[in-house]
Every structure is written in structure tokens, then in C-alpha cells.
Amino acid sequence: MKKLKDLFILFITFFKIGVITFGGGYAMIAVIERELVERKKWITHEEFLDIIAVAESSPGPIAVNSATFIGYKLNKFFGSLFATLGVALPSFIIIFAISLFFDEFLKIEYVGYAFRGIQAAVVFLIISAGIKMLKNVKKTPLTLILTILTVITLLLLALFSLKFSTVFIILIGGGIGVFIYLLSRAKEKPEKAENVTDKGDEK
């Protein structure tokens, strides 16, 4: 019975986090820190840093990543299941309710005007989110070149209405990352250094 109660509390806690956070994953991380580290003391500050590292390096919504990870730490599989359900459910309910009358809502003349204005704000939010993330990326020649190349590639694709899946662009980026990493590690080993620099020049 105690376990059931624990799971219920976990669910309710993440449900609450899902209801009160606006602005996506990063805003949620701040709320999780306040709720779970400072108030409930379920996880230590060290563990919390681990959680952010895992959430940021795994694909998918950061909120889901952190809920799954924290849930597992506290109550294994069922813990992660209930935490994830809790964090996703409020969104699902609220958005589904909105979607039911959204089209009708947009047909109201002034709402339509409002949304034309809002679109400009969304464009700004996306660009500023990208720039904010750029500031957080470690600046090396590799990261700067990759960022610039990606922007140019995407703009060219859009300009000439060409199709090339974003999935491949991400995977190519990852591949280049692995390649450079192996190269730099091989260079660190002095006895192999000569061989590898030769190879590096060829490429």
C-alpha cells in the first residue's frame, strides 16, 4: 500500500508541475528544482545536475526526460511511468479542450487580427530561443562552423524549395562530432599521432 501512495504522490507532484509551468522544458527545470530539491528534498543538488545532463543529452521533450529520470530514481519503472503521465496529462487535457473550439475561435474577426500579430511574436520567440541556445553552446571552431553551415544549408533549401530531411542534418552533425572527437583523441596518444594527422589531412 505504501508504494501505491508513493506513486500517487509522485503523479500528483508532476501533474502540478505540468499545470504551473509555462514556456517549456527549461522553465520546468527551474520549477522541478524548487519543488523536488528545495522543498520536498527527494533528490540532492548533485543528482539534480545529473538529471539536467541526461535530459539535455537525450532526444525528446526535456520535461518528459526529467520526469522519467526522476521517477525512476524514486520508484523504478512505475515511478517513471507515473511521473511522465503526470507531467504530460495537464498539457494533453488543456490543449485538447482548446483544439475543440480553436477553429471557431479563429473565425471571430478580431481574434484573427490578434493571431496575425501573435505570429510576428512567435517568429521573434523562435529566433531568440535559437540565439539564447547559441550562447550556451561551448564555442569552438567546430561548433561555430556547424551552426553557420546548418543555417546556410537550411536557408538555401528553403530558397529553392528543395527537400532534405532535418533528421539527416542532425545525424550528419552527430557523425561529424564523433569523427572530430575520435581524431582529437587519437592525436593525444603520441605514438599514434603521425598516422592520424596524415589521415586527417587527406579528408
Binding site: I127, T150, I169
Partner: peptide
Amino acid sequence: SGVRPVVVGLIIA
């Protein structure tokens, strides 16, 4: 280390 800058580039683009 390769994916992060690409994602940033994708968002900005």
C-alpha cells in the same frame, strides 16, 4: 558535440 550546434543552427534558420 556535433548535434548541439546543428540543432541551434536549425532553430535559428
